[in-house]
Design a protein around this nucleic acid. Structure first.
Length: 586
RNA sequence: GCGGUCGUAGCUCAGUGGAUAGAGCAUCUGUCUUCGGAACAGAGGGCCGGGGGUUCGAAUCCCUCCGACCGCACCA
């Protein structure tokens, strides 16, 4: 990156000033950063090091800048001039040759342009979505899915080895799974003609009304108050009853419960897998919580906690000292007084498993409603002897869909959530993914379904894709007119001198650092902002600089065609990072 | 009550302690004998929730108040 070169030159200048006794900077390392000023008059790049050194040097920032600039290779190949501005900024004006070099690198690196190696050696596991197998994937899960997938792309682009994982909470200890099994079982009996008493989930009063005895078998089939009431279970039950002719109902009660529990979770996992596949998110591994129990990893983890003195008995249960290990406000139960482990035990064991597989960075994406659980997991990680800072938790806020100014409500069919597949079917996969990444995950995003479907400029997805289509289509147009598309390296690129051409090139040259920063800050939404800027710069160039029109000098034409080509490459790479398609035509 | 997150243009949101706080949408005004108008150019619109502090400099860091949302299980 060009700023790396500038940093080296600047550091040499500072060192030289120190050596000559013109600057004292102390022992602390000097952090040099360059950013691109918003105002073009402030040069190509600016740095604030002179102001940061003010205290250490005991000099006015402008004077410090002065002494540094004297030692910079100004007027030679790269830097044409450096100005001191405002309180002490150093504004660098560069020879545009570096932009032409960038064009050649973009073509040479092609799909790899934008990638770096700042994270080589990192092995990162991103765990995301991990929805309980009790219902379809919701739009909130979708936000996490798009985010996790994009983060994985970003960290890979920075050189890390990244795996995507979905954790399936399918443990037999799980109250939720048991409820799910019971709910399915009752729906199944209902389709066979048994009388089902749904109770009333909306009131808090305890059930005292007389149960309706089943006309068929005389028993009382009462639907649990906390049961899963979504109608998707009715559909599954009907299908099952049709397939097996009601054979399951003949099983003994305990076998029946276990069977339904298993079937319910198997069905839901398949459903979730297909929901996510439709969204274009693929996981490297679906990790079963139950496997931790089967392999004894949960009890191993608990024994380890005990041996390290972080677990203690109280009230017949086993507790973890989470308050001591992290910032939790009370200790948490590991093993209930009925001898069943809680999810904390399993989760601690799961994260030990992750570390033991060789990952040195763990990222978990959870819904914001789980924030109270962050400290518990960190305590669990610490208690097993791992660095809790290596386990980062990202909390995503809700997503609110609006239609005609009214919030979209969860459907009864889906159990009061909005299924992700419904969103994908309505606005398409690309738009759905793009909107999930449009805002920072820290804010509750609201977005308008009508806008997302609109195929016009006010829709950011189309603006982004249109940039690619326009560039691709110009290249296709050139070919159909018999104009050869030459490699940037074989063209006189110095003919690109218009402010629009240089502006676009500058934008494209930002791409590697934009990718790096989006990864460093775990902030994919930076890219959706950046892609709009690239699109805008392309359209400005397109409007003002004719390429295939009559009367354009062939040498200029070739240089501009090359500019379209490198823009196409950058936009395509950007869309790939976001997981959105890059159409040649729209 | 305790804890967490967040208050930025009419709306939806960006904003690494730095220069005059930005963008999209919406509103208004322009640009088409067009290489894709799904575009471009321009205008209006702000005590960055209030008040203190930290410093050369605060939307950004600290304290406090107000408001919104979320969490506070031997559920996950």
């Amino acid at each position: 990156m060009i700023t790396d070169q500038l940093s080296v030159l600047l550091r040499q200048a500072v060192d030289s000033a120190v050596k000559d006794g013109e600057l004292t900077v102390g022992d602390e390392p000097i952090v040099i950063t360059f950013d691109t000023p918003k105002n073009k008059d402030f040069g190509d790049f600016a740095t604030n090091v002179a102001m940061l050194l003010q205290k250490r040097a005991g000099l006015a920032p402008r004077e410090i800048a002065n002494r540094i600039i004297k030692r910079l290779p100004v007027g030679q190949s790269l830097i044409t001039r450096v100005e001191i501005a405002g309180p002490g900024f150093m504004n660098f004006y560069l020879n545009p040759v570096w932009l032409y070099d960038t064009m050649v690198s973009i073509e040479r690196e092609d799909t790899a342009y934008g990638n770096g190696n700042s994270r080589s050696g990192e092995r990162t596991l991103i765990e995301f979505v991990s929805a309980n197998p009790t219902g379809p994937i919701s739009v909130v899960n979708g936000r996490a899915a798009a985010l996790g997938d994009c983060l994985a792309n970003l960290l890979s682009a920075a050189g890390a080895v990244v795996e995507r994982e979905f954790y399936i909470n399918d443990a037999l200890n799980s109250t939720q799974i048991n409820l799910m099994g019971i709910s399915l079982q009752l729906r199944y009996l209902q389709t066979l003609g048994h009388t089902l008493d749904m109770g009333d989930s909306s009131t808090d009063e305890e059930e005292e009304s007389t149960p309706h005895a089943c006309a068929k078998c005389g028993e009382n089939h009462i639907f649990p108050k906390e049961g899963y009431r979504g109608e998707y279970l009715v559909e599954i039950a009907e299908q099952m009853a049709k397939e097996d002719n009601g054979a399951l109902a003949a099983l003994p009660a305990t076998d029946q419960a276990a069977k339904f529990r298993q079937l319910a979770s198997d069905r839901m996992i398949l459903q979730q897998q297909s929901d996510l596949a439709a969204f274009g998110v693929k996981f490297d591994k679906w990790f079963y919580e139950s496997s931790l129990y089967e392999k004894g990893e949960v009890s191993t983890a608990i024994e380890l906690m005990k041996s390290k003195g972080y677990a203690y008995e109280k009230d017949g249960a086993l507790w973890l000292k989470t308050t001591e290990l992290s910032k939790d406000d009370q200790d948490r139960v590991l093993v209930r007084s009925n001898d069943k482990e809680t999810y904390i035990s399993a989760d601690a064991a799961y994260h030990k498993n992750k570390f033991d597989r060789g990952f040195n960075r763990l990222i978990n994406i959870w819904g914001a409603d789980h924030h109270g659980y962050v400290q518990r997991l960190k305590a669990g990680v610490s208690s097993l002897g791992y660095d809790q800072d290596k386990c980062e938790i990202i909390l995503t806020q809700m997503i609110l869909l609006m239609r005609d100014g009214e919030p979209v409500r969860g459907s009864k069919r889906a159990g009061d959530i909005i299924p992700l597949v419904d969103l994908v079917n309505e606005i398409g996969r690309d738009a759905a993914r793009y909107y999930c990444l449009l805002n920072s995950y820290e804010t509750t995003a609201t977005f308008d379904l009508e806008l997302a479907k609109r195929q016009s400029s006010d829709n950011p997805v189309f603006y982004a894709q249109y940039a690619h289509a326009r560039a691709a289509s110009l290249l296709a147009q050139a070919i159909s007119r018999g104009v050869e598309i030459k490699a940037a390296a074989d063209i006189d690129l110095t003919l690109l001198t218009d402010e629009r051409e240089l502006g676009l090139l500058r934008k494209l040259s930002d791409f590697p650092s934009e990718v790096k920063l989006a990864g460093d800050f775990l902030a994919p939404h930076r890219l959706t902002g950046y892609i709009r800027e690239v699109g805008q710069a392309l359209h400005q160039f397109y409007e003002e600089c004719p390429t295939l029109k009559e009367g354009v000098d062939p040498a200029v034409r070739d240089a501009r065609i090359a500019l379209f080509n490198v823009t196409r490459i950058v936009v395509r790479n950007l869309l790939a990072l976001l997981g959105v398609s890059a159409p040649d035509k729209m």
